[in-house]
Nucleic acid binder design. Structure first.
Lengths: 136, 136
DNA sequence: CCCCTTAATAGTAATTTTTATCAATTTTAA
DNA sequence: TTAAAATTGATAAAAATTACTATTAAGGGG
């Protein structure tokens, strides 16, 4: 693993497959959805193991944990800076190219001085290309 | 009520007190926290009623439902545009003055054309003024 | 002011998502 | 090879939220 906090983590079969399967998709699966996929390769893996490994991988900076206000978390193995659009029609979560406006935010608020901002969470709700086409 | 969707809603004692108590605070309480406050005035109110009313008031545009990635929702009766900072030290959620950068986002992404953005969710994680002082 | 329709309520159960527990297993380093 | 420690599967528990239902009450029309 990359991160310092992960010196003592072991790359078990389960952890490796969880990471591999998450890297295969751009669908931003929930823990449960990923569990169903991983189960095809490791039929005996338990849901708790998937949750635990996603938590560890996220703490190590190997994957991203997303909360888009759905009452459940999603996961993303793409670590390049980008945003997310949640389509309110079909529920899909789609990558949105990064525009470095977070920096502007950070600069503006740092200038305000009374609190230290460590991260900016940004996401979008809207209608994806496919659903827009269906509506016309 | 203000909103069209709320023509048939009734301003019950419970709904009025939920709204009044939420308007009294800037602490961005969860449903459960607000339930504890409201209970002092209406000892027989049930948690489900608080949830239901917060949902309805939010659909009517009377209150704001916030999800800051904590695994639970918070509510805010302040409808003026502003952002939120969640202090990772003390857990408090603090209002951050509005800077109209959402518009910049919207314009930039509208120009991309392939999807229709209906809302932008922005919030900050960081350390609040009080916690910064304690750390020095 | 009193009905009457219907939304809303209290109380409770159920659901959903996530975390905790723990004995057994597996990994890794010495 | 062996022993310490991380990890696992299975299961239970926790936490947040939603669903259900008989009863109550809001509020508009007469």
């Amino acid at each position: 693993m990359v991160n310092m906090d992960c010196e003592r983590t072991r790359l078990t079969k389960q952890r490796r497959v969880v990471l591999e399967e998450l890297r295969k998709t751009t669908a931003h699966p929930t823990a449960d959805e990923l569990y169903e996929v991983v189960r095809k390769r490791l039929p005996n893996i338990s849901l708790g193991t998937v949750y635990r490994n996603l938590e560890i991988l996220s703490a190590c900076g190997e994957v991203l944990k997303l909360d888009l206000g759905e009452g459940k978390k999603r996961f993303d193995a793409c670590m390049e800076p980008h945003y997310h659009l949640r389509c309110t029609e079909c529920g899909r979560v789609i990558d949105v190219p990064y525009l470095p406006l977070e920096r502007e935010f950070e600069e503006q608020f740092k200038a305000m001085g009374s609190f230290k901002i460590t991260s900016v969470q940004i996401h979008f709700d809207g209608i994806c290309e496919g659903c827009l086409k269906k509506m016309n």
